[in-house]
Nucleic acid binder design. Structure first.
Lengths: 154, 154
DNA sequence: TAGGTCAGTTCGGATTCTGAACCAAGTCGG
DNA sequence: CCGACTTGGTTCAGAATCCGAACTGACCTA
């Protein structure tokens, strides 16, 4: 509790930065669809039942931020599809965590979708890992401390 | 509309359910603060620089959804503080994932905060784990399939 | 008594979302 | 060639939100 009250720990700045990109509910739902393989404007629109201008704006933002990339998939009438980039794929743990929380704490009954380890087909788990101790652990065993990029510059 | 058009995997229903609770950027920032130990109305307000009515509404929603709980911490002028419940604590992996993505892909330079394994002080990692194979793996090794709660009931 | 803290509520204006209509470029059937 | 259809948008007005500023109200402290 002895934290330096208002040292303005930028502890969440990375979260804030992430939210500047992901920000709102539609964006996250678009990404969910992306992970499910949806790539085209109209497929997003139909699946999400999202207003066109909003979809346009969100896709543009995701492309601008390098989360999705616009690929030409048809020459003659130029048509583009939106695919996850490496940066976008890196959001997988976030989406998985969100989905699992919904499964565990909000769903009435069983989970609608199960994620499995592709190699063996068994359900996967998501864990915190310490490579030093070589063990997994829970949220209760986490501590935080200012990193190299903190406001130590002061 | 006639939804059964596509495969109609409700894969994201859990994500959607989660978003119904977390929904917008303020809610997530409030939770970030909660994990950092912030509990009181005015502390949230000052730290986030959020409009009061919005904070009121968001806190109420989080309490209604059992993510935060309202605890009386002062009798005489009745004052409440907002604490994470077990359900709220369970959001830790989501917040951590979001923070790490920001660290890894958005931050210029080093991460402002490092999460460590409390027991040993070494940085932690977040991984997908298969307890059958007893190994950790990446997003590329994930597959999904309809779970017991899928639309099979229809 | 005056001033301060904490946790709100009320209110009007500024954003943002939304659906409906329109546009453009190309394809297909006849 | 004509008209209908598809895909991926844009424009626009009205509705729903969000927000900051000001106010309230219960209490404490000097």
């Amino acid at each position: 509790m002895e934290e330096p009250t208002s040292t303005d720990t930028p502890a969440g700045c990375s979260i804030q930065a992430s939210l500047d990109v992901l920000g709102d509910r539609w964006t996250i739902l678009i990404l969910r669809d992306s992970f499910r393989g949806v790539r085209r404007f109209d497929d997003f629109r139909r699946d999400l039942d999202i207003a066109r201008p909003v979809l346009t704006e969100r896709l543009k933002r995701l492309v601008d931020n390098g989360v999705l990339a616009r690929h030409l998939y048809c020459e003659r009438p130029p048509r583009y599809e939106y695919r996850l980039t490496t940066r976008g794929m890196a959001l997988s743990p976030t989406l998985v965590a969100l989905m699992r929380w919904g499964d565990d704490w909000l769903s009435e009954g069983a989970a609608p979708t199960v994620l499995v380890h592709e190699a063996c087909g068994h359900p996967l788990d998501q864990q915190f890992v310490c490579w030093e101790c070589d063990e997994t652990f829970t949220p209760y065993d986490i501590a935080s401390r200012p990193g190299p990029g903190s406001a130590a510059a002061h």
